[in-house]
Simulated scan of single mutants.
Amino acid sequence: MSEDQNSVVTLKVRVSPEFREKIVNTAKANNRSMNQEIVARLEKSFENNIPSTLVSEYMQAVEEKNDMIKKQLEISNLLVLKLAEKLPDDDPSKSRMLELINQLN
């Protein structure tokens, strides 16, 4: 990649020897120089910039889904409790059902 000297700026970056080795290995695997590998990775990090509104919408959807799951769990617990009430007190299934409901609450 030949670049006009006026359009290139040199940056100095300090990294650990282990991190440098990762860059060297990845650059070799991608058939690039270390510089090309670093620049490609930095450029990609800017391409993947997700708008904050999208993140907010996603978080809201996750919260709504969590609320729905909590409601479904509450309904399931009530149904299991009603079923357990119908069983005789000496039935081992009844005590196990009640244990599970208590663990979930």
Rank of each mutant, 00 (worst) to 15 (best):
I50S: 08
L73N: 08
I101A: 04
E21G: 08
I69P: 01
E21H: 11
I23E: 01
V39P: 02
E57H: 07
P17T: 03
Q60M: 10
K12C: 04
P92M: 06
E99W: 09
K65T: 14
N30W: 01
I75E: 13
T26M: 05
E21L: 09
F46V: 04
A40C: 08
K22C: 06
E18G: 15
K86A: 08
L87M: 11
T53E: 10
I69D: 01
M68A: 15
P51R: 06
L81G: 07
N77R: 11
S93R: 14
K65W: 07
L79C: 10
E37L: 04
R14P: 00
M1W: 04
R96A: 08
V9P: 00
V80N: 01
V24A: 14
D67F: 11
R32H: 07
I101Y: 02
T26P: 00
V9Q: 09
K71G: 09
N48R: 14
S33E: 02
I69K: 04
Q103L: 11
E3G: 08
T26I: 03
V9T: 12
S56P: 00
N31D: 11
E74V: 14
E85P: 00
Q36A: 13
P92D: 01
V9I: 11
E18P: 06
R96I: 04
K65G: 07
L42M: 13
D91F: 06
K28W: 05
V62A: 09
E18D: 15
T10Q: 09
A27I: 03
L54R: 09
R96E: 08
Q72G: 01
E57T: 10
N25Y: 05
F19L: 15
R41Y: 05
K86C: 04
V80Y: 01
K65F: 12
A61E: 10
K12R: 13
E85R: 12
K12F: 00
M97G: 13
N25W: 03
P92L: 05
E85Q: 12
V80R: 08
V8H: 01
S2W: 06
K22R: 13
V9M: 06
E57I: 07
N49F: 13
A27V: 02
L79Q: 14
L83T: 15
S2R: 12
L79T: 10
D67Y: 11
M68F: 12
P17K: 02
N25R: 15
P92C: 02
N48W: 11
N102G: 02
I50N: 08
S95Y: 07
R41T: 06
R41C: 07
Q5G: 08
N77Y: 03
V55M: 01
A84N: 05
E47P: 00
K12M: 08
D91K: 07
N66K: 15
Q5R: 12
L104Y: 06
L73G: 04
K71T: 09
Q5S: 14
P92I: 05
E21W: 00
L100P: 00
M68G: 09
N77L: 09
S45D: 07
A40Y: 02
D4H: 15
A27G: 03
D67W: 06
M97N: 09
E63C: 07
S76W: 08
E85M: 07
S76A: 14
L87W: 07
V24P: 04
A27Y: 05
I38G: 00
Q60K: 13
L11R: 11
E85A: 10
S95Q: 14
D67G: 13
V13G: 01
R41V: 04
I69G: 01
E37Q: 15
P17N: 03
L98C: 02
